[in-house]
């Protein structure tokens, strides 16, 4: 199916942000695992895989719209040296992602592409949930102190 005006560029822009996030969250997850913070390792790794699934959907949708998914382009992967730094840059990445998605949703409405819009809305919902999670971690650190917070991250959360 032929894409509406600007939708391919839009999807590729989101794909770039997604692929960057996959790498950024994955390195953070592995670093947390290496430090012994099993809970954070599991949580952040899961988030990285969620981004990969979003990338999966985007690539499929781009091909369906007869576009070429740009797998080459990545933004700068921001890596924090400590857990608070990691949370800070991940929050920034998610906020940037939400902005791109919101602009995309507005654009899709304007050009009348409601399938793409629906897909972006689902992604925005996940981003919202992740922003909420990160903000909670930052607030918890503020309240209980970094050492207490990190001591609670050594065990995996019971699932």
């Amino acid at each position: 199916m032929q894409a509406k005006d600007g939708v391919i560029e839009l999807l590729n822009k989101i794909l770039t942000a997604d692929l960057t996030a996959v790498n950024q969250y994955f390195i953070h997850a592995k670093m947390c695992g290496n430090w012994g913070y099993e809970r954070l390792h599991a949580k952040i790794r899961e988030r990285s895989i969620d981004e990969m699934k979003d990338a999966d959907d985007l690539i499929g949708h781009l091909l369906y719209l007869e576009g070429v998914p740009n797998m080459q382009r990545l933004s700068t992967v921001q890596v924090g040296e400590t857990v608070p730094e990691q949370l800070k840059v991940d929050l920034k990445a998610e906020q940037d992602m939400l902005k791109i998605l919101s602009d995309g949703i507005v654009h899709c409405t304007k050009v009348g592409d409601f399938t793409t819009r629906h897909m972006l809305e689902d992604m925005a919902e996940d981003v919202d949930a992740h922003i909420d999670w990160i903000e909670t971690q930052i607030e918890t650190i503020k309240q209980v102190g970094l050492e207490n917070y990190l001591a609670q991250q050594m065990k995996k959360e019971a699932s």
Partner: peptide, 10 residues
């Protein structure tokens, strides 16, 4: 923050 991942510089 890491500022250069190629060289592992902070």
């Amino acid at each position: 923050m890491y500022i250069c991942l190629c060289k592992g510089l902070t």
